Computed example of a mutant assay.
Amino acid sequence: MLECASYLLGSPIKLVTDDANLLKALQLVVRWMKETSDYSFSIDESIAKLSEENQPILSIYMACMTKFALENKNKAKDDSAVKYGVSLLLASYCENSDKSKGQTSEITSLVTAKNNNTLKQHLGMK
Rank of each mutant, 00 (worst) to 15 (best):
S46R: 08
Y39E: 04
M33Q: 14
S87N: 10
L2E: 13
A69Q: 06
S59C: 10
K99D: 00
N72Y: 03
Q55S: 11
S59L: 07
D78C: 05
L15T: 05
M65H: 13
E95G: 10
K34G: 09
P12D: 09
K83N: 05
M65L: 11
Y61H: 11
L50V: 01
E95F: 03
E71A: 06
K34I: 05
N116A: 14
L70S: 06
E45G: 04
N72I: 00
S87R: 14
K34D: 10
A113Q: 06
L8T: 06
Q121A: 14
K77Y: 07
G102Y: 03
I43P: 12
Q103F: 08
L70K: 10
W32M: 07
K49T: 07
S40V: 11
C4S: 15
L89S: 07
N54S: 12
S59D: 11
Y61T: 03
C94T: 02
N116C: 09
T17G: 12
I107N: 02
I47T: 12
D38P: 00
N54D: 11
A48C: 12
V111H: 05
V86Y: 13
S37V: 12
L15R: 14
P56H: 08
T104E: 01
S100V: 10
D19F: 01
D78G: 03
S51H: 11
P12Y: 06
L23C: 10
R31A: 07
T104A: 09
D19Q: 01
Q55H: 10
E95I: 00
L89T: 02
A5S: 10
L2H: 05
K126D: 10
P56T: 02
A25R: 06
S80I: 12
S92Y: 05
I13M: 15
K114S: 00
L123P: 06
E53F: 13
T112S: 12
I60D: 04
D98F: 14
Q55C: 04
Y84A: 04
S92C: 03
L15A: 08
T112L: 06
L15F: 09
L110A: 07
V111D: 07
A91I: 03
L58G: 08
Y61L: 00
N54I: 01
T112W: 09
S40E: 15
T118S: 14
N21T: 11
A25Q: 08
T17K: 15
A76C: 08
V82M: 07
V30A: 14
V111G: 08
E71R: 09
E71I: 00
L119T: 04
G102P: 04
L23E: 14
K67Y: 13
K34T: 05
